[in-house]
Design a protein around this nucleic acid. Structure first.
Length: 617
DNA sequence: GCAAGGTC
C-alpha cells in the first residue's frame, strides 16, 4: 500500500520523514529544486506496513483570479464585485509533483500547518492529487494533527489522523474572495482616476487593499494627532527633605491639575506647616519579569526598537537562519513552549559559545526555570528558539544580530525573574501626601543574559522612620505642559496592526513595505529613532476616503471592516455562517462604498490636491 | 500594472 504524505514546506517534510522512518529513508529530486521526495516504510496501525513517500508544497499551490475577459481595460472595475472567480495554478512545478506522485497512492495524508491557511493548502493538495486518482476523496484523506516537531508528538499525530476541516477551507475561500474583489476593483479605479488627471506617473499604481489601507490609516491618524496637538499647561507641587546630608525629592500623590488657582490654594495651605511627617515606610519585594517566549511580532518589534532594523529585514534574517537550520520556524504567534519540549537540550547546545556558554552551563547546573506561558497559541508552530549552535563568525551582519538576540531571549526565558526590593516613603505635609521610592536590585538573574533590558538600582533612601518629623528644605509649586504624542515608529505600527488583526505574523512586514514602496509613507530619522510619516499622497488618499459619507458609517481607512471579516471567518469555521453569507455581506459593504467613490470621484481627488497645494505654498 | 495569504 502506498501512502503519499504532503507537508506545507520542505523543512517539515524532512523532519517528519526522519522521525517516521527512524532515520532510514531515501531521497529523490522533484520538479522543484527546494522540494524532495523522501521514501521509506512505515507501519500505520490502520493499514499495516506501507510504502510512504513524503514531500511538500511551498505554501499555496493555486490562487483565485478573474477570467481573461475581466482584465484591466476589458471591463469597468465595478464589475469585479460580481464577476466569476476561477482557481488558477500558481506553481506549475509543484502542481505537477502532486499529480505525478498522487497517481498511484492509495492514501493521501496531509501534514500542512494546523492553522486556517494550512487547512486550505491541504485542500489544494487533495484537489490536485485526485485529478489523476479517483480513489482519493475528502472522506478517506487523512489529516495529521501536530503543532511542533517533537518526536513523540509526531508519532502520535501519525497514528491518530483526523479529516480536513471543510469549514476552515470555506473560511479561507471567503477571505480570498473578499480580498480579491475589493483589492483589484479599488486598485484599478484609483489608479485610473489619478492617472487620468496626470497625478501619478505612467508606471505608478495606486493600490488599495483591505490590509494596506488600515495600515496607512494608522500612520495618518498619528500624524494628524501630532500636528493638531495643543499643549495644555498644568501645575503641581514638589517637596524636598534632607536627612544625613542627603537630599530626597518627593512627588505629589495627586499628580498634577490643570487648574492653577486650585493648586495654589492647596500649596498655600500646606505652606503653613513648617515640617512634614513620614507617615509610612514600606519595603516590599519586587520583580522585573523575564520575557515571554518569542513570537514573530515580538521579534520584529524588538528588532526595530533595539537594532533599528526594519520588520522586513528582521524576518528576512530570521528566515535565512531557519533555512540554515540554526533557529526554529520564524513565523509563529505562539508564546508558550509545548509541555513535552526538551528545553534543556536546546540550552545544552549553546554551552560551547564563549559569549553565553558559561551562562547556559549555569542554567543547566543550577538556575534553570520553566519559561512563562503566554496566552497565544497558533496550534502550528512553537515559539522561535535556537536549534543548532552557530559560531557568530559563520553569520553575516543581520543574521548575527538576530541569532544572538534569539539565543539570549531563549536563555532569558529559561532564567529566573530579576529580584529587587522597593522602599517607599510617604510624607505628609499639611494635608498633602508625597512619596519617594528607592529600588535595590538584589538578583539580576535573566538581566545578565538579556542585555537589552535595563533595570538598575536607584539611589537608596536615607534611613527614615515611621512617624519621624522632617524638615522641609524645599517646597515648590511648579508648572509644566502636556507634550504631543511622538510620530509613529515601526515597532508601534506592528503592535497596532497585530492588536487590530491587520495582516498576519507572516505578512505584517510586507504591508508596511507595500505602503512605503507605493509612496504613501516615508521614513525619516530623528536622532537615533526612525519615524514613519505619511506623504501628501498617503494623506490625500485617507482624507479623500474619510470625506465620503458611506452607508452604515463604514470606513475604508480604519481596521474595523477587516476585523468584521475576521469575525465572519470565525463564524464560518464554527459552522454558524456559510462562505456565501459572509462573502456577500462583506462584498456588499465594499461595493456600496465603491459606487459612492465613483459618483464622487472629483471630491476624492480634490482632497489630495488641497493637501498637496497647501504644502507647496 | 491590481489583493492577501502561504513559502524560497
Amino acid at each position: 500500500m502506498k501512502v503519499l504524505c504532503v507537508a506545507e514546506k520542505p523543512s517539515i517534510a524532512k523532519e517528519v520523514s526522519k522521525i517516521l522512518s527512524g532515520g532510514s529513508f531515501s531521497v529523490r529530486n522533484s520538479n522543484n529544486k527546494y522540494i524532495k521526495y523522501f521514501d521509506f516504510k512505515y507501519n500505520f496501525p490502520q493499514l499495516g506496513l506501507c510504502d510512504v513517500t513524503m514531500t511538500a508544497v511551498l505554501g499555496h499551490v493555486t490562487n483565485f483570479d478573474f477570467g481573461p475577459q475581466f482584465g484591466w481595460n476589458s471591463c469597468p472595475p465595478g464589475r469585479l464585485f460580481a464577476a466569476p472567480i476561477s482557481t488558477m495554478v500558481s506553481h506549475q512545478d509543484v502542481y505537477k509533483n502532486l499529480s505525478i506522485e498522487g497517481r498511484n497512492a492509495s492514501k493521501l495524508m496531509i501534514w500542512t500547518d494546523c492553522d486556517r491557511e494550512g487547512e486550505y493548502i491541504g485542500f489544494e493538495i487533495l484537489e490536485t492529487a485526485r485529478k489523476n486518482n479517483s480513489r482519493l476523496t475528502l472522506e478517506n484523506t487523512w489529516r495529521a494533527q501536530f503543532s511542533h516537531l517533537e518526536k513523540n508528538h509526531i508519532l502520535q499525530a501519525s497514528r491518530n489522523p483526523i479529516q480536513l476541516d471543510i469549514n476552515s477551507v470555506r473560511a479561507v475561500e471567503c477571505r480570498m474572495e473578499v480580498d480579491l474583489r475589493c483589492g483589484i476593483s479599488f486598485t484599478r479605479f484609483l489608479t485610473d482616476l489619478y492617472k487620468g488627471q496626470s497625478l501619478i506617473g505612467e508606471k505608478e499604481v495606486i493600490s488599495y487593499g483591505t490590509c494596506q489601507f488600515p495600515t496607512l490609516g494608522f500612520v495618518v491618524d498619528r500624524y494628524i494627532r501630532v500636528k493638531n496637538f495643543v499643549p495644555e499647561p498644568f501645575w503641581y507641587i514638589i517637596v524636598d527633605i534632607k536627612k544625613n546630608d542627603q537630599k530626597v525629592g518627593f512627588l505629589w500623590v495627586k499628580g498634577h491639575f490643570f487648574d492653577r488657582a486650585y493648586v495654589t490654594l492647596l500649596y498655600q495651605k500646606a505652606l503653613k506647616s513648617p515640617n512634614g511627617k513620614i507617615v509610612s515606610l514600606t519595603k516590599r519585594p519586587t520583580s522585573n519579569w523575564r520575557p515571554l517566549p518569542l513570537t514573530t511580532v515580538d521579534l520584529q518589534k524588538d528588532a526595530s526598537r533595539i537594532f533599528k532594523m526594519s520588520a522586513k529585514r528582521a524576518l528576512d534574517a530570521a528566515e535565512k537562519l531557519y533555512n540554515k537550520g540554526f533557529v526554529s520556524y520564524p513565523r509563529t504567534e505562539t508564546d508558550r513552549f509545548p509541555a513535552a519540549m526538551n528545553l534543556k537540550d536546546v540550552i545544552e547546545r549553546q554551552t560551547s559559545s564563549n559569549k553565553w556558554g558559561s551562562y547556559a552551563k549555569e542554567l543547566l547546573e543550577l538556575k534553570f526555570r520553566s519559561p512563562r506561558s503566554g496566552s497565544h497559541d497558533d496550534k502550528a508552530h512553537p515559539p522561535i528558539h535556537p536549534v543548532k549552535y552557530a559560531e557568530l563568525t559563520q553569520l553575516n551582519g543581520d543574521e548575527k544580530t538576530i541569532y544572538e538576540y534569539i539565543v539570549r531571549r531563549f536563555l532569558a526565558c529559561c532564567s529566573d525573574d530579576a529580584k529587587g526590593e522597593q522602599t517607599t516613603a510617604t510624607l505628609k505635609w499639611g494635608d498633602e501626601l508625597f512619596t519617594a521610592n528607592g529600588l535595590m536590585v538584589l538578583a539580576r538573574n535573566y538581566l545578565d543574559i538579556y542585555i537589552y533590558n535595563k533595570w538598575e538600582s536607584s539611589k537608596q533612601l536615607p534611613p527614615l522612620e515611621q512617624g519621624e518629623e522632617v524638615n522641609i528644605t524645599n517646597a515648590k509649586m511648579k508648572d509644566g505642559k502636556t507634550s504631543p504624542p511622538l510620530h509613529m515608529t515601526e515597532s508601534e505600527l506592528i503592535a497596532l496592526m497585530d492588536a487590530n488583526g491587520i495582516g498576519t505574523d507572516a505578512t505584517i512586514a510586507e504591508h508596511i513595505e507595500k505602503i512605503h514602496s507605493r509612496n504613501y509613507v516615508t521614513k525619516i530619522k530623528q536622532g537615533n529613532v526612525e519615524y514613519i510619516l505619511p506623504t501628501d499622497l498617503g494623506m490625500g488618499l485617507i482624507a479623500g476616503f474619510d470625506e465620503m459619507d458611506f452607508v452604515d458609517n463604514i470606513s475604508l481607512s480604519k481596521p474595523f471592516l477587516r476585523k468584521n471579516l475576521e469575525i465572519g471567518l470565525q463564524e464560518i469555521v464554527e459552522g454558524r455562517k456559510t462562505r456565501q453569507q459572509v462573502a456577500s455581506e462583506m462584498v456588499e459593504l465594499y461595493k456600496n462604498a465603491f459606487v459612492l467613490c465613483n459618483q464622487n470621484s472629483g471630491n476624492l481627488v480634490q482632497k489630495y490636491l488641497e493637501i498637496r497645494n497647501r504644502n507647496v505654498q
